[in-house]
């Protein structure tokens, strides 16, 4: 009983780390560009389809396909910001909302058109391997995915702390007027930021494709998931996205363990409502 529960919690923790990476992208984009990416889950689903296609047609392991998919999504995000969203950055929020919802609808129906309504999953050869850690059983796939997600999150934090481009992006978030005063190319930096957020999504999608099936309706579900995570963790906080992802990942498996798996969404939303009542700025968010 307790061993079983512990196994479940470890599973939730590992899955949560992959969720975190996806939510990190949303948080980074909002924190800098101040645009909420309502097509976030749809982009994740796109990345999962890409991973599935690479695995099915080119026999490429999602872990190896990950850099390629992340790069692809980076380009997609960069182009989206430059060509589409940039004109809306200074516009009222409801206009940004409509724009990105439109993008999301196009992506959902586009994937319906190309891949059909059925669920697509990836079964890697080592899919059923497990590691015994003491009394616990840990899925190899899940462990690999979580490790990769954690490494990528760490690299992202290093990028923002150590590189000049990363610092320039933080500067835009810190004081936009100041950034323009010293001649930073804000539009380009915004596009790079959106690209980085999308690359997180690309990497997370590649990893998720090994854990769950993808279908057109996955997009909106994942968007909700990313939203819940960043609101619980604190919008714009990178550490918050990490914590929120783990929390939601664990809550999902606990819901499955104690009640039934189909009730996991209810648990996530309950946490969201509790956070909004008790700590509206999120667990690690700064109070404005």
């Amino acid at each position: 009983m307790t061993i079983d529960l512990a196994n479940q919690i470890v599973t939730g923790l590992l899955t949560g780390l992959v969720y975190s990476l996806m939510a990190l992208g949303l948080s980074v984009i909002f924190g800098v560009v101040r645009v909420v990416n309502f097509a976030h889950g749809e982009m994740t689903a796109l990345a999962m389809y890409a991973a599935w296609a690479l695995f099915t047609w080119a026999e490429l392991d999602p872990l190896l396909g990950l850099p390629l998919i992340a790069l692809l999504l980076f380009v997609l995000g960069y182009v989206m910001q430059r060509g589409l969203i940039d004109a809306f950055v200074a516009k009222p929020e409801h206009m940004q909302f409509i724009l990105l919802v439109a993008v999301a609808i196009i992506m959902v129906n586009g994937s319906l058109l190309v891949f059909g309504p059925d669920a697509h999953g990836i079964q890697v050869p080592y899919g059923f391997d497990t590691y015994e850690v003491g009394p616990l059983l840990v899925d190899k796939v899940r462990l690999l995915a979580a490790t990769a997600a954690l490494c990528i999150s760490g690299l992202l934090m290093l990028f923002f702390r150590r590189t000049m481009t990363g610092k320039a992006i933080r500067a835009c978030a810190d004081n936009l007027v100041g950034a323009r005063v010293i001649g930073l190319n804000v539009k380009r930096l915004y596009a790079v930021t959106f690209g980085i957020g999308a690359a997180c999504v690309g990497a997370a999608g590649a990893l998720l494709s090994m854990l769950i099936d993808v279908m057109p309706s996955s997009g909106p579900e994942l968007t909700m998931l990313a939203f819940i995570i960043v609101i619980v963790g604190g919008l714009g906080s990178m550490g918050g996205a990490l914590l929120g992802g783990i929390l939601i990942g664990v809550s999902e498996v606990l819901a499955g363990y104690f009640l039934m798996p189909s009730m996991k969404g209810m648990f996530s939303f309950a946490i969201l409502i509790l956070i909004l009542i008790l700590r509206p700025q999120g667990l690690m968010g700064a109070r404005k």
Binding site: M164, K167, R170, A171, D174, V177, A179, I182
Partner: peptide, 25 residues
């Protein structure tokens, strides 16, 4: 160059980072 009204420094970044960013042009 411009030294803007209200100084417009980057408040949550270090003094050194602020200066280095000035040389990004």
């Amino acid at each position: 160059g411009q030294v803007a009204e209200g100084r417009q420094v980057f408040p949550t970044m270090s003094v050194e980072d602020n200066l280095e960013l000035g040389a990004m042009v």
